[in-house]
Amino acid sequence: MIPTIEANELSKWFGEVVAVNNLRLTIGPGVTGLLGPNGAGKTTFIKLALGLYAPSRGTIRVLGAAPRNNLDVLRRIGYCPEADKFYDSMTGYEFVYWMNRFWGMDAAAADKKAVEACERMKIAHRMDDLIEEYSRGMRQRIKVAQALASDPELLFLDEPMSGLDPEGREDLFALIRELGEEGRTVVVSTHILYEVERVTSNVVLLHNGCVLAEGNVRQIRDLIDEHPHAITIRCDKPRVVAGHFAGDAATLNIEFCDNAVTIRTSDASTFYGKLNSLVLDEPLEVESITCPDDNLQAVFDYLVK
């Protein structure tokens, strides 16, 4: 399959500041989370992919071609920027309509697509109000609407959830997943790990302009064998469970909390095997087995350390 975005030794620096450093990265169809703290190079990467920046070194190919000054590529991309200031004297509909016109649609198509996009983002009832009267969440929706209006194959959403209320977030999570399922490439940039986890398990972790890891969150987690896995078992006899693993050489740390015990082990697969045996042998009432560090935050913390 042809990757939608392919970066090869991609670097971008501004004076002495290296924003993106020797990035080798491929992103295919579906939803990909671009994750990293502020200043990690997420927005710079997106702007390189949009052709807004020329690479200082290396190459980037988007939809099979270099994006810089390539209008054919830009026609196939939608972009929702992080900033949310627009022409306040315009209505939401007018904003999306004119963005469609700038995209190159004729008046009838721009009108039709603008209305469709507003309906899809559930702002059709407010689309004729001035943008200055919109809440931050509404602005966010209109911004996503203008990105969606041209039915792009590749969609960049830069911090799309900021300012959205819980209902709006849920709507956008569902929309992003839907777009991914339709076969589009959706790149969601955020520094909030929870947001990415809600839409995809496929992530690219950026830090200081470099790719720390890419792929499935669990696969990435499994790769970090040198870090202990934390496993929390909530049951009626947490001390029995702890006693069973206390003498194990792989067990590094045991913590109790209410009716739960958290065990950090350097050998997760052996641990799970033993736990299975224990549950079968002992009369334990296990409520839940969770891995508190089987999430992006833990992965990110480990990788950045």
Binding site: M1, T4, P29, R75, W103, G104, M105, D151, G183
Partner: peptide
């Protein structure tokens, strides 16, 4: 590519 198979593109002409 999957996006060629399934996405709905704008079917009108873009201003050149």
């Amino acid at each position: 590519p999957i996006y060629v198979q399934s996405y709905r593109t704008y079917d009108g002409e873009a201003r050149g």
